[in-house]
Computed example of a mutant assay.
Amino acid sequence: SIRLPQNNFGHCLHGGPAGWQYQVYDVIAANDSTLVLEMDSPDGDNNFPGNVKATVCYTLTPDNALDIAYSAVTDRPTVINMTNHSYFNLSGDPDKAITDHLLYINAADYTPVDSTFMTTGEIASVKDTPMDFTTPRAIGEKIDETDFEQISNGMGYDHNWVLTTNGNDSIIAASLYAPSTGIRLDVLTDEPGIQVYSGNFLDGSVKGKNGKVYNKRAAICLESQHYPDSPNKPQWPSVILRPGETYSSHCVFRFGIEK
Rank of each mutant, 00 (worst) to 15 (best):
G140W: 04
V73S: 15
A29H: 15
H101N: 04
I68C: 12
G92W: 04
G121E: 10
S71M: 05
S115D: 13
T119M: 09
F48H: 03
N47Y: 12
M118N: 15
V52M: 10
T119I: 08
F88D: 01
H101F: 02
G140F: 07
T59Y: 04
P77L: 03
A72H: 09
F148H: 12
N84F: 02
P42Q: 10
D147R: 10
T34D: 00
G140R: 03
T120P: 11
S71V: 02
Y110C: 03
F88N: 04
S41G: 03
N106F: 04
D67E: 10
A107M: 05
V113M: 10
N89E: 09
S71H: 07
C57T: 12
T129L: 00
T119Y: 09
D45A: 13
A124K: 11
P94C: 12
V36K: 10
V56T: 01
L66P: 00
G44S: 04
D75F: 13
L60T: 06
E38G: 11
L66F: 00
A124Q: 09
V113T: 12
Y70F: 10
N106Q: 06
V73D: 15
F133I: 00
Y87C: 05
F133T: 02
P77M: 08
T74C: 05
G92F: 05
E38D: 09
D109M: 10
A29I: 06
T59E: 13
F117E: 09
T59M: 07
V113N: 06
N106V: 03
G92C: 01
A29E: 15
N89Y: 04
V56S: 01
R137S: 07
T135L: 13
P136V: 07
T129Q: 01
E141Y: 02
I123A: 09
T83I: 04
P49E: 05
P112Q: 13
N64F: 12
N47F: 09
V73F: 11
D109F: 12
D144I: 02
F88T: 04
P112I: 07
S86I: 01
E145G: 07
A108Y: 07
A138Q: 15
M131E: 01
L90Q: 03
Y104K: 04
T61F: 04
E145D: 14
D67S: 08
N46R: 12
D95E: 13
V73R: 15
A138E: 13
T134R: 13
